[in-house]
């Protein structure tokens, strides 16, 4: 399975021409490894289509963090396993490596990704349930719907929402080029804790901590930059550190056979520098969220931070106009426009 080479794909939309590369060039070198073709360099991540269209970095990262939270919440309400949720997040992040957040409303894409990952992971959910919960979670704590909006099959606005999600599902499939295989960091973490930690008690607590680190890691762009094994190794290292558990660093030997015990980072043959980068990004994220820095707390949403002349901005103001003149005493039925998460 090949995928149009990521960077050339981007360039064509941005109008940047790179020599010797064409979309879908069958003679271009194709990466064979299925997860490697979805890893991007640091440079590519700072030049995502959204950024190129003028979305500032903090706004983009906020959307990424909020989406992970959003999918986590919706998935929780729908009672799907963690794997399904993380696959949805991965689909979402891959999608926005190739498409701009200004052209595709992130909450809608997130709903479509969740719907798709439920199918792919064999944890089927009916579309009406997906719609009900994504709308409810999205509109929670808004002025009109403190508990979230109930959108049932016969509610007005349901049909529109359904069409939007189905259209986005196809869009996601097209952009992902039907590449649905995802490598899960959770199973790698499990392999690590099983092979390095003897006693049950330690194993359980460290696995739990690592598992939480992995859950949190989806709030960053880590998973489109680093391999699942690298992320798992970093999470394993951090959770062992948290529990003050010393991991073999490659100098210890097995007592009976005298064989050298593999260092923790050699288990998956990871590059120590890259693992360190992962740890750093994770810690930075915690620090940023801890500080509740102005960017995260009251920072501008996606639309607000766009230059005023952008078409998305105009659309937003039109929406506002439309909403500001509701007929009195009539129940509000319009679904919230997909601007940002609340």
């Amino acid at each position: 399975m090949s995928r149009p080479h990521s960077s050339s794909h981007d360039d064509s939309r941005r109008g940047i021409k790179r020599p010797n590369q064409h979309i879908g060039d069958s003679s271009a070198p194709v990466e064979t490894s299925e997860h490697n073709s979805w890893l991007f360099t640091e440079e590519e991540i700072t030049e995502t289509p959204s950024r190129v269209q003028g979305l500032p970095e903090h706004a983009e990262l906020k959307v990424v963090a909020k989406t992970a939270q959003f999918i986590q919440e919706c998935g929780g309400e729908l009672q799907v396993p963690q794997l399904t949720k993380s696959v949805a997040v991965k689909f979402f992040q891959r999608f926005f490596m190739l498409e701009s957040m200004l052209n595709h409303p992130p909450p809608l894409v997130a709903a479509a990704c969740l719907f798709l990952s439920c199918k792919v992971q064999e944890t089927h959910k009916r579309l009406k349930d997906i719609i009900y919960w994504t709308v409810k979670v999205r509109t929670r704590n808004t002025k009109d719907f403190p508990d979230g909006m109930d959108l049932f099959e016969n509610s007005p606005g349901y049909y529109e929402e359904k069409n939007n999600i189905l259209d986005k599902e196809r869009e996601v499939l097209r952009v992902l080029n039907f590449d649905l295989t995802v490598d899960h960091p959770y199973k790698h973490l499990w392999a690590l804790t099983k092979s390095y930690l003897g006693s049950d008690q330690v194993q359980r607590s460290i696995t739990q901590a690592g598992w939480n680190f992995l859950n949190d890691s989806f709030r960053t762009y880590l998973h489109v930059r680093y391999d699942a094994k690298e992320v798992a190794t970093a999470a394993f290292f951090m959770s062992a550190k948290l529990h003050n558990h010393k991991l073999p660093d490659g100098t210890t030997r097995e007592r009976s056979t005298g064989k050298r015990i593999l260092a923790w980072h050699e288990f998956f043959k990871t590059n120590l520098h890259r693992v360190e980068e992962v740890c750093k990004i994770l810690l930075d994220m915690y620090e940023l969220e801890d500080k509740a820095s102005s960017v995260f707390k009251k920072g501008a949403g996606v639309i607000e931070s766009v230059p005023p002349k952008h078409p998305a901005k105009r659309r937003k103001t039109e929406n506002v106009k439309l909403e500001s003149t509701p007929i009195d005493n009539e129940p509000r039925t319009r679904v919230e426009p997909y601007t940002a998460y609340r």
Binding site: F115, L116, R126, L127, K162, I165, L166, F178, L180
Partner: peptide, 14 residues
Amino acid sequence: RKDGVNITALREIK
């Protein structure tokens, strides 16, 4: 327009 993209197709592709 019922359940979106055909699940059979997705399974087979994956």
